[in-house]
Design a protein around this nucleic acid. Structure first.
Lengths: 345, 345
DNA sequence: AATGTATGTTTAATCGATTAAACAAAAAAC
DNA sequence: GTTTTTTGTTTAATCGATTAAACATACATT
């Protein structure tokens, strides 16, 4: 495309020296390699004149490092992941890394394909938001000695670096919060997924009920498929409301579930929180703008993203340091959507 | 990182042939290069056995093509751009391209820096959402003969490929829609920016008033800075409401302006649309979930993104074809937030 | 038998950088 | 006046692929 890229050789010719000298000078190695002072100055000047920009492909091919991080998330158009992506992008840039992002749509195959493509492009390491059934991929990366950090989700049985949320605690807190508000029939809408973080959210929710002596009714827990959330959420909410013990409060295990659920709740004409209290995971502008601000479990996005990058970069320098496994705590942000029942009537 | 990458050479040694043959075979050139059938089979088999994955750095260095597109947007954490990014990602992947994304935060310097970094990484071309005052960058790319397409925004005075929205028409339609609904004092909140699309939105808005014989009052138009929208929007809305001709309807020129504005409108306790009707550019889930669904100007995101990729890829093949300049039409989606005044009281 | 034409395979240059090692010339040491 | 050391610079291999050109054979033609 470009008219003619300026290469080391061009500078070398113009300065009447070998490319080696040019390379030394432009990489600040003039001292170690004892390059003559005058020639060094001359080289620098010519480089500036020609606006020399090194070819990173060549650099990378030689060094085996691309200064590139592969970020695999579920979907960049989902605000949660978009936020993460932005944080990762900024943090990576600060450290001289570029990020390539790929969306897996929660599909193990897509995630596999992305890993392959990114590996061929020689990324130095990965930050991965794992899909269900992708343990095999993780094992593969471990076996190939590829640097990576799991983000937001991890596999408790596989020793890896990871940064995730204490989902159990977060869900437990959400449940307790509702119970303290006087809600008794609390439902949970989660994804039908064996992913640990999702199972933990379910466990935390159930434990919060148990701890308060509330008997859990199966109709209160709905697990919907990733690809069928629209229909399944509707059915799920219908069933929860029509059950023998109709729910008076609902916890959504993710941002997307909340959005979809709230749309349906609006369509049903239910008033939040009078007809149905709401607590959701994730956070977003929507929650602020809803007629009744939504109580949510605030995830420390900034920290999650930054720590992931930090761990990865550290790992690239010290591949054999022990696995860093971080569980961060979420903070429940109580808003109107879960205001105590007493205060209502 | 990886234990040992398998290279062409490894296969060549194992098959007892030169790397040339291996390269021919694995690139499907066995016919043209008349490679022996048996040896070809053998090579393919060994490649599979060793799970050979070509090194794209080497390929790219040789070919001068990286099959990578640089996407520069304002901010990946903004849903509008995140959506675009996802569409671009998918469309690029379909064509064998990978995308690197960079957020410019509407800053020309950041955009410059991204262009430099991406060029050093030898992207084949760019899709750019331009920042204000970045004409110089565009001229630079033209001069260097780098392939690129402008997305969402363009510079009318610089002949480039671009795909944007007919902002004038969209804003005009928004104005007309409100006027037809019986609103007379219509305000516009836009960005303080000389970017053409923004100026066009302002022009369209004003023209809609003019056409209906409504006298425009300066207090109705607020242009806020990118970095100070929080405060400026508050002041702006206050002034619009307190002016001699208080607004009864408001148009937001972008998604982010709308979000910020609506938060404040909520805080003020104003009821939409009774106290204030709303129409916004952009589209998002928020608009559906607001207590009063927001009327918005629907941009053909899918088409915008796909066309941009298409134009860019075409350009990479035929660098000298004429510039494709596409203006797409938005569609006004009327919702409750701008319901006709008559229907209210 | 001499020449021409397929057929199959290898050689070596190339892309743009890095860097150990070799080399040359000047300065210091004995 | 040699030898050694220091200083400054070049050579050439390397990273992993691609590909034009050279090189062998085998086979066909006259």
């Amino acid at each position: 495309m470009n008219k003619k890229k300026v290469s080391l050789k061009d500078i070398a010719e113009k300065a009447q020296v070998s490319t080696a000298l040019v390379s030394y000078v432009l990489n600040g190695k003039e001292k170690e390699s004892r390059v003559g002072h005058e020639i060094a100055v001359k080289i620098k000047q010519i480089a500036k004149e020609l606006n020399y920009q090194p070819n990173y492909l060549a650099k990378s091919l030689r060094s085996g490092k691309t200064q590139t991080i592969g970020l695999i998330i579920a979907d960049i158009s989902n605000p949660f992941f978009a936020n993460i992506a932005r944080i990762v992008e900024d943090e990576a840039k600060k450290n001289g890394y570029t990020v390539i992002i790929g969306s897996s749509d929660e599909k193990a195959e897509k995630s596999w394909a992305l890993i392959t493509v990114f590996l061929n492009r020689q990324v130095d390491g990965f930050i991965i938001v794992s899909s269900e059934n992708s343990e095999e991929q993780i094992e593969y990366l471990i076996e190939k000695n590829v640097a990576f950090v799991l983000l937001d989700r991890h596999f408790p049985d596989i020793p890896t670096h990871f940064v995730s949320l204490n989902s159990y605690k977060a869900a437990f807190d959400a449940g307790v919060h509702l119970i303290q508000g006087g809600y008794k029939n609390i439902g949970l809408i989660a994804y039908k997924s064996q992913l640990f973080h999702m199972q933990e959210r379910i466990r935390g929710y159930r434990e919060s009920l148990a701890e308060s002596g509330i008997v859990f009714h199966p109709a209160w827990l709905k697990e919907v498929g990733f690809d069928t959330i629209d229909e399944e959420i509707k059915v799920g909410i219908d069933e929860m409301l029509a059950s023998e013990f109709p729910v008076d409060a609902l916890i959504f295990a993710t941002y997307r579930l909340a959005i979809t659920g709230l749309k349906y709740i609006n369509a049903l004409g239910l008033k939040v929180p009078d007809d149905l209290a709401i607590v959701s995971f994730g956070q977003a502008e929507v929650f602020d703008l809803y007629y009744c601000p939504i109580t949510y479990v605030q995830q420390p996005m900034e920290e999650l993203g930054k720590t992931a990058v930090e761990i990865l970069i550290h790992q690239l320098k010290e591949p054999h340091d022990e696995k860093r496994q971080t569980l961060m705590e979420a903070q429940l942000m109580a808003r109107d959507s879960s205001r105590p029942k007493a205060a209502i009537s």
